[in-house]
Amino acid sequence: MRPFNPWFILEVISDLLPYLPVTIFMILGSVFFGSLLGFVLARAKVMGRRIPKLLADCYIATLRCTPPIVLLFIVYYGLPELLMSTIGVNINNVNKIIFVLVTFTLLFGATMSEVMRTAYESIDKGQQEAALSIGLSPYQAFYRIMLPQSVAVALPNFGNALINLMKDGSLAFTVGLIDMMGQGTLIISRNFGSYALETYIALAIIYWSLTILIEKSFGVLEMHLSKGKKSVAE
């Protein structure tokens, strides 16, 4: 077997880290747009009007069954065609990251809508009734009473969704995006395939570290937010 060089792992990590911002940008973009989408979907399901709810249900069910790589390819090959034939816009030369953002916005939106919806529904409706009974408008009751409490409940699930997004996002290199994974495959081909294992291990270490970072940060956030609450076991 060809030699395994553990030191190469450290070397390669420093070659990969400069591309971390690409990964982060991709994640933050997807979180932002995905959360907006998720809010719209969650609202459709909660409000209960038939057609919006049906559309939201179908969308979420469909995306739940879609492997990320499949969606990525559909967007990558399909979006330019679609835009070309409907509104005549040629996006074939646009930065690959757009396709990645679209894909993961669609995916994250589906996950987030469920996170938001279950968090909102877990808050005792009595809170809302009390708010209405002292004269708050439904809008005020939502933003001042229901939403803050929902956020606290949603936080752990949001953290999980974020980690999953980051892991799914690692597939972006398959459409040619040069993020950390993309750079990794370039490094491997530069070395004629000889240090593949070391490179992959380096990438795994980076991703693992990021996951732990996110988990710890959310742990701190959750503790901070429960300053006024008793734990579940009361």
Partner: peptide, 14 residues
């Protein structure tokens, strides 16, 4: 009017 609930319904986040 004002309403006093059986299970108080105080705003938990305030």
């Amino acid at each position: 009017t004002a309403f006093v609930f059986q299970n108080y319904n105080l705003f938990n986040n305030k």
